[in-house]
Design a binder for these strands. Structure first.
Lengths: 275, 275
DNA sequence: CGTTTCCATACCCCTACGGTATCGCCGCGG
DNA sequence: CCGCGGCGATACCGTAGGGGTATGGAAACG
């Protein structure tokens, strides 16, 4: 199977419409139909069930969509990482915007002081996209937070565990309490984070995709939120926190794609675990 | 990048010889040279340094070899799993030959008794090859033993932990001891298992690649070996065991490729964790 | 029943992949 | 020092197949 065929199939499977898929691929619709047909014949499997009115995935098609995306990411990663080796010999670290408190600067400083350290480019991205960036080679290493971020298929080292706090404007009625329980927050509209597919859960409260944006909303009195307690280090004036005693513990981890232990990456991980 | 180009590059990078690589690929040498040259031009990177006498990998080439193998495995896995969906709706479980004691039959029986159970094909393979079988789609799920088997890039559930025992012919001088330490075995030539690349560590003792073969050698008095204590359940007559008190604990895990939680797989894993 | 929508088929063109022949470079043996 | 052998690169050619346009044919809709 060629990556071209996979790209074609994934496009059609996502659009469920040959015309739109062809447009997205920058080609005409007939050769796309043919290519999918040939792919089905070669695999000996029906991938799509089409009427002149609708296109739907068969079970086999669903499998190829899921596995094909992974495979295309792997190919893209191979290409990107190969290109990068000869150009910039550095690492790309990806992290959620605003979510790593003082850990990130500490890590960068400590690593930069190591002998043989390479440059580390930092990419801050919206929540939930770090894993994709690792898988398709745009990044080499990520700071993630269990249990929020998925770590399936990644190698990782745990860096530390912390509780969570409710962040609110100073003077909020809950700000005088010594501690809270999740049940105290049942009535409060908390901010909503995107799922991994980019959709948002239903409910009240604003939709947010990074912590900077979120803290702004909190400062404006438009939202409350529960975050790891390390945010206190970077909190603006006018915001205050109260521990949420029974919120799930958050573990910060440094994660990287398996089979990619370069010397530079190993050094960075070693520094991180010593912090 | 097309998978064809990747296959070509991997072949040349492994052979370090255009002629042999072309032969392996079933094609003539000149188009192969051209294809690699085009790949390098498109990537803007030198992958191979060739003299008329030798071919060596550049740093970028080494990266592409490693990442390219992973990508090719992912493509192969997508293809194989898609084919299998429509044909046999079952699962393929892979395990080291002879290494799972009574766990494997118990698991298969318990799962078969579940409502909605699908057929489970069992593949017993030489040590160290289970991970590759998962990655390229020949298998859906594996029984592995930490710390011997690599589990990088796999999702897993731990099933149990056990100590290890020295296996020897009955009547061996050590067989009367109540327990042993690793230092007691320093002088004894133990069997050697292959590394993940298929090579064997140096040293005395026979080379083995599965437990059945190994136990035969022990029965013949040609080798001693340290194995998880669950082997005692399947031991032939004439063999006896003594615990090795300070040998590393062995954890049996059930592992599967990330992003592949089919209903059938989830059911099998659930049964396994309940055992 | 005409119209629209959408996928499949028919047909054509041209890129680019693979094959053969040959060159150029280099190490080695006489 | 020269010729030979081994190996990768280049030149050139034929053709399979990927992509384009035009069109067919089935299904929903008013």
């Amino acid at each position: 199977m060629e990556t071209r065929e996979l790209r074609y199939f994934v496009a059609v499977a996502e659009e469920l419409h040959f015309g739109r898929a062809a447009q997205r691929l920058g080609m005409a619709q007939p050769p796309l139909s043919r290519a999918i047909g040939q792919l089905e014949r070669r695999l000996g499997v029906e991938l799509l069930r089409r009427t002149s009115r609708s296109v739907t995935l068969t079970e086999a098609g669903a499998v190829l969509l899921r596995e094909g995306r992974v495979a295309l990411d792997a190919v893209a990663a191979a290409e990107r990482r190969t290109r990068r080796v000869s150009q910039t010999p550095g690492l790309v670290l990806v992290s959620k915007a605003g979510a790593t408190g003082e850990l990130l600067p500490k890590l960068l400083d400590a690593y930069a002081a190591e002998p043989g350290a390479v440059t580390v480019d930092v990419v801050l991205c919206p929540a939930g996209q770090q894993e994709a960036q690792l898988r398709d080679g745009r990044a080499d290493v990520a700071l993630l937070h269990k249990p929020f971020d998925s770590t399936t298929g990644l190698d990782l080292e745990e860096l530390g565990t912390e509780g969570q706090v409710l962040v609110m404007p100073a003077g909020h009625e809950l700000s005088t309490r010594p501690g809270l329980r999740m049940s105290d927050l049942a009535e409060i509209p908390l901010a909503r984070w995107p799922h991994r597919d980019g959709s948002y859960p239903a409910g009240p409260g604003p939709e947010v995709h990074d912590a900077v944006q979120l803290l702004q909303l909190v400062a404006l009195g438009r939202a409350l939120t529960v975050l790891p307690e390390s945010v206190r280090a970077t909190l603006h004036e006018g915001l205050t926190t109260v521990p949420v005693l029974d919120a799930p513990l958050v573990t910060t981890v440094i994660a990287w794609p398996p089979h990619s232990r370069s010397r530079a990456l190993a050094g960075l991980v070693a520094v991180a675990t010593r912090l």
